[in-house]
Design a protein around this nucleic acid. Structure first.
Lengths: 205, 205
DNA sequence: CCATAAAAATAGTGATCCCTATTAAATCAT
DNA sequence: ATGATTTAATAGGGATCACTATTTTTATGG
């Protein structure tokens, strides 16, 4: 990650990561269809051609903003999930971390991915497929952790880990929706505590 | 509900309820921001002035289409919930009915209300408040049923019925999101069966 | 200083957005 | 038939949509 050597030509006024951060925040708050390229260029302080030369298109920018945001969160969250904590405890901390992310002060409510682009115009079907794939990947990550829990004897051998992962995925999506509707952090965590009572295994192995 | 007596003037080409049904289906599939007035007028087979004289504005039409759709479902669903079945059994049938609604053949996926207008442009904030209020009302209906269950001794007296209602509300929202992403009916019902294991009371009193 | 390179700014493009002023058509009452 | 009444159709308005051809600015290399 060494600083780029100064190249020829006019220097950039906008750092790429700063631009992605601004874009991610707008898309997060207003959604893909609710955010215009004029909103984006205005918030970044650039003119339209600069946006297109830096990021390609509105859809390309959305994809890059999602990748950028996910990269920032994924390290901490995968550490929680892949730690040597019992699966139940790891899951609890993982869900609490998501609840925190859904209710950050001075940030948009909810999750940028969990409830994004569920309904959409036909022309945005490819954007919807992208967010759906990200949600499916998150569920598969949960399932893999649950499979490990079965191997470790923390869950009954007959556990349907796929459905269990989709159940907690539904909790994550429901929390995002309720955060968008104004739910506070403690309210989401009380909800998590109920969801954790559906855990099929012995607790704290 | 007697048929209206033929009045003076040119007869309507489009029945109001037929128009609302067409509008509801479009809004359901594409969302509020993803559906244009041109989409609506084309699907209804009318010209723009007819849409505005019949329904007022795009936002008014959305509100009327939501009311129209909810009215059709609410009778059956409130019968399920307010029946004399034990609360647990009523809840199970209620959630199964919602799962069926999320995965109807030849209908858009998911629920028209549960995951609608979560992210939105600033100019559509009033539309978002409307759908949020409908979601909150559904949660309060669940809470009221749970409160009755406490009175009937089907739930422990110290049960936090508000959080329990928001938990099952999250399940409903998560199911809608996953249905939008392609989940089938049986997958949603397996998810419900796990959610029901979080029920705090004695089953089948 | 000059040529080259790279990015920014200007000034738009055609398409689509939600909505409406006006005119034409179709019915009923007399 | 005529006038009154109600709805439909025509034709577009002003704003915004995502995007871009062209020109101008600012840097480096020689």
């Amino acid at each position: 990650m060494e600083k780029q050597v100064r190249k020829r030509g006019r220097p950039r006024l906008l750092d790429r990561d700063v631009g992605l951060d601004i874009a991610a925040r707008l898309f997060w708050e207003r959604g893909y269809e609710g955010t215009s390229t004029a909103d984006l260029t205005k918030a970044m302080g650039i003119n339209p051609p600069t946006l297109y030369s830096m990021f390609g298109s509105k859809e390309d920018l959305y994809r890059q903003a999602l990748d950028f945001s996910i990269a920032r969160e994924s390290t901490r969250r995968s550490q929680i999930l892949q730690s040597h904590l019992p699966a139940y405890d790891a899951l609890r901390l993982y869900l609490y971390d998501i609840a925190d992310g859904d209710t950050q002060p001075d940030k948009p409510r909810g999750c940028m991915v969990s409830t994004a682009v569920l309904q959409h115009a036909e022309e945005n079907a490819s954007v919807a497929r992208m967010t759906a794939a990200l949600r499916e990947a998150a569920i598969q990550t949960l399932k893999a952790r649950f499979d490990r829990a079965v191997e470790d004897g923390e869950l009954p051998t007959q556990t349907d880990t796929d459905t269990l992962a989709r159940f907690y995925g539904a909790i994550i999506q429901g929390m995002s929706a309720q955060a968008c509707d104004g739910a506070c952090n403690t309210r989401l965590k009380r909800l998590i505590d109920i969801a954790l009572t559906a855990w099929p295994g012995e607790l704290r192995t």
